[in-house]
Simulated scan of single mutants.
Amino acid sequence: MTARLSDRRIRTVALLTNPVAGGGRGDRVAHRAAERLRSHGLEVDSLRGSSAEESLDLARQAIAGGVDALAVCGGDGMVSLAVQAQAFTGVPIGIIPAGTGNDLAREYGVPLDSPEAAADVVAGGRVEQVDLGRATPDGGAPHVFASVLCAGLDSAVNRRVNEMTILGGPLRYVLASIIEFPTYRPRRFRMTFDPGEAGEETVEAEVLLSAFAITRSYGGDMMIAPDADRSDGLFDVCYVGRISRLRLAWHFRRIYSGTHVGLRGVTTRRCRAVRIEAQDVEAFADGDAVAPLPVNVEVLPGAGLFLVPRSLGHH
């Protein structure tokens, strides 16, 4: 699908920072980005949330105040907070990467190693309209996300990553996988795809891991959904059934290149919505906990806006 791109004139930017992102790099990275944004003649309002709740409140206040762009300095979880405030508002999000995985920055072509170059993307004003996802637990509040919702071994790994204090970057995901993999057992899943539509289908299967993807990667560049199109109105679904540990370990590295698709035991499909049910499984999205299953998940077509480099071609 052709990328939906437009140009904006950016004059005012709210820069929301996770001060503990990247092991405490967040503040330093944000300072460099703010200086660069000001060098472009932009007015920058620097915001720091001491918790996820405070950060979300600050993001909502900035958008309600009429800011031209909301830039976030942190990782995928911080971007996820931003999209919960931004969805359907017309205010674009800029990413200043400072997290562990930085999958969303990578997806949108934002430079990972230079806060100044990332700030230049924000100032450039090129906006891409994309899909978001929304997960609603039974009896719970909806949770908007920008990349991948996962449930199974991958969400257990995510929980472990968020609790770890050693290592940094994608290596943390590798170590967490090594820790969780030997003892994790597949669960019985019931997945109802496109419920209420003519093509509704229910699948019951033993599932080791599952991903429902707007974008292509999670876990620090694991290409779980290599063909995902972030503006086609569909999730790319990938789930792995009961396979031997030896076989999974042998093929694990293929997730980084996306060549796991098509292997025996790996199922892929697309859908607009899905209800996911299983016992003792937690759903994670954009690297953060959503809720224990069951969860209803749906695509929000065109709900997201991201500032992207002018050289970025839609994959």
Rank of each mutant, 00 (worst) to 15 (best):
L5I: 15
D7I: 06
T12S: 14
V13G: 01
L16P: 06
N18Q: 05
N18I: 01
P19Y: 02
G23I: 01
G26N: 04
G26R: 06
D27R: 13
D27I: 05
D27H: 04
A30N: 07
A34S: 14
V44E: 02
D45F: 00
S46M: 03
L47Q: 06
R48Y: 07
E54W: 02
A62C: 08
A62K: 09
D68P: 05
C73M: 05
D76L: 03
G77D: 03
M78V: 09
V79D: 08
V83Q: 09
G90V: 03
I95Q: 07
I96R: 14
I96Q: 11
T100P: 06
G101M: 05
G101H: 11
N102T: 08
D103R: 11
R106L: 10
Y108F: 15
P115E: 08
A118Q: 10
A118I: 07
A118H: 10
D120C: 09
V122S: 07
R134T: 11
P137Y: 11
H143W: 15
V144E: 13
A146G: 15
V148E: 14
A151S: 15
G152Y: 05
D154F: 10
R159K: 13
E163C: 04
M164H: 11
G169P: 12
V174W: 13
V174I: 14
I179C: 04
T183V: 14
Y184M: 08
R187A: 15
R187T: 05
F189P: 09
F189V: 10
M191S: 08
F193G: 04
P195G: 05
E197Q: 11
E204C: 00
A205W: 00
A211G: 12
G219W: 02
I224R: 10
D227L: 12
D227I: 02
A228K: 11
A228L: 10
D229A: 12
V240Y: 03
V240G: 08
R245W: 04
L246M: 08
L248Q: 07
I255C: 02
G258K: 11
L263D: 15
G265Q: 06
G265I: 09
R269V: 06
R275A: 11
E277G: 02
A289R: 15
A291E: 12
L293M: 09
P294F: 11
E298F: 02
E298L: 05
G302P: 06
L307E: 02
H314P: 08
H314T: 15
